[in-house]
Computed example of a mutant assay.
Amino acid sequence: MTVKPSIRRIATRVVAAVAALACTFSLAACGEDEAGKIRIGIKFDQPGLGFKKSGTYVGFDVDVAKYIAKKLGYSEDEIIWKEAPSKQREAMLQNGDVDMILATYSITDERKKAVSFAGPYFVAGQDLLVRKDDHSINGPEDLNGKRLCSVTGSTSAATVKEKFASEVQLMEQPGYAECATALFSGIVDAVTTDDIILAGLASASRGKLRVVGKPFTQEYYGVGIKKGDTKLATQINNAIVQMIQDGSWQRAISDNTAGTDYTPDVRYNPPTPNEGEEE
Rank of each mutant, 00 (worst) to 15 (best):
L129M: 02
D97K: 15
Q126H: 13
Y176R: 05
K112W: 01
K161T: 06
G213M: 02
L148P: 02
P140A: 10
T193M: 13
T193V: 14
A182C: 08
V188Q: 04
A124N: 11
S150R: 09
G125E: 06
I197V: 15
D133W: 10
N144G: 12
A202R: 01
L170F: 03
G213N: 00
R210I: 11
V191F: 04
S205Y: 05
A158H: 03
N95Y: 11
S185W: 06
I101F: 08
V168D: 00
E110R: 08
K161M: 08
V123I: 15
A190G: 03
P120F: 00
Y121G: 01
G153N: 02
V115D: 05
T192L: 13
S185P: 13
L93H: 06
T193E: 12
I196L: 14
T152I: 09
I187P: 09
I107T: 07
M100V: 14
S154L: 08
F122E: 09
I197K: 07
S156P: 05
G139C: 11
G207A: 02
D127W: 06
L148Q: 03
L143T: 12
A118P: 07
V212S: 01
R131Y: 12
L201I: 09
L198R: 02
N144F: 15
D109P: 11
S136K: 13
F117N: 02
Q126W: 14
M92I: 11
D97M: 15
G139V: 12
G200M: 07
N138E: 12
N95G: 15
F164K: 05
Q218T: 00
P215D: 00
S106T: 09
C149R: 04
I196E: 09
E219M: 00
V160H: 03
E219V: 00
E141I: 13
C149P: 05
R89M: 15
K163H: 01
L128C: 02
S203F: 09
D194C: 12
R131H: 06
G200F: 08
L143K: 03
P120Y: 00
N144I: 15
A202M: 05
V168A: 01
K132T: 09
E90Q: 14
D127T: 01
T108N: 04
R111E: 07
F216A: 00
D99S: 14
G119M: 05
E219I: 00
D99P: 14
R131W: 09
K112D: 05
G200Q: 03
G125I: 11
A165S: 03
L183K: 01
T192N: 06
V98E: 11
T104D: 13
T152G: 09
E219P: 00
K112F: 06
D189I: 11
V130R: 01
A158N: 01
I197R: 04
S106Q: 10
A124I: 13
D97C: 12
K113S: 10
I196S: 14
L198A: 02
G200P: 07
L183F: 10
K208R: 06
G175H: 10
I101D: 03
Q94L: 14
A114S: 15
A118I: 14
Y176Q: 09
S136T: 15
T104V: 13
A124H: 08
N138F: 15
V151E: 08
K208D: 02
L128I: 04
I196K: 07
P120K: 00
